[in-house]
């Protein structure tokens, strides 16, 4: 069975926000909602200061607190490691939003459009009423992962079945693949580098690994 994970090499990220834009384009999220963001973190004290870019989204946790608290079973952890939301079951109680320690989830209670109360043609075409009033978040582009199951292509290798953010990354900072596949690029990268997962102390077992140095 596959177990999909994402790697983000913090040494390579230049904070260009191309992944943010690619996600927005691929998933047509409403104004103000970004399933993927790149944070610009300044730290230290002059003259020893640093600037770090931190791409964040749903961590598709191995032990997702959002799934545990969800009263409707709308949030489920799939066998391939993806944490998914069934928009038809979700009641929009926001319990999962509170349970997520990664600020990855959001709820939009009424439709919003970029420039006025009415949608542009492109917004109207891609508007999904099922996403109003329910919890939503990064899906790891699950439609593409499901396409791979039908076509035999490999997520993380073939662009058609790889998350949009990973495809778009200009510096090769983002990787995606199957941790159960010993030949996958993510498996090799993690074997060769030092990495961490955010808020591991909370026991969430995130599927996103941040690479920070060579081994």
């Amino acid at each position: 069975m596959s177990r999909y994970v994402m790697t983000i090499d913090l040494r390579r990220c230049v904070g260009c926000q191309t992944c943010t834009a690619a996600c927005k384009g691929a998933n047509a999220t409403p104004p103000g909602i970004q399933w993927r963001r790149v944070l610009d973190i300044e730290s230290g004290e002059f003259p020893d200061v640093r600037r770090t870019f931190l791409p964040v989204a749903c961590m598709h946790c191995g032990n997702p607190p959002c799934e545990e608290v969800c009263p409707t079973r709308a949030t489920t952890k799939r066998a391939d490691g993806l944490v998914a939301i069934d928009y038809d079951l979700c009641i929009g109680c926001a319990n999962c939003v509170m349970a997520c320690p990664y600020d990855a989830r959001s709820i939009v209670h009424e439709p919003h459009y970029a420039y006025s109360d009415s949608p542009m043609a492109s917004e109207a075409k891609r508007f999904d009423p099922n996403r109003v009033g329910v919890s939503m978040k990064c899906t790891f582009c699950k439609d593409r992962i499901e396409l791979a199951e039908r076509t035999g292509q490999i997520p993380g290798v073939d662009p058609e079945v790889t998350p949009a953010c990973v495809n778009s990354c200009i510096s090769g900072a983002m990787g995606f693949g199957d941790m159960e596949d010993s030949q996958s690029s993510v498996r090799r990268l993690l074997a060769e580098t030092q990495h961490f997962r955010m808020h591991e102390e909370l026991g969430t077992e995130p599927s996103v690994y941040y690479v920070w140095d060579k081994s």
Partner: peptide, 28 residues
Amino acid sequence: CVWFEIGRPWRAMNVYRHFATSWMTREA
């Protein structure tokens, strides 16, 4: 009050679907 807050109030009965781990289901 909670019923007026949730995003999809007409699906409120779905709250009973996850007794195994959800304290919100157990509360209901």
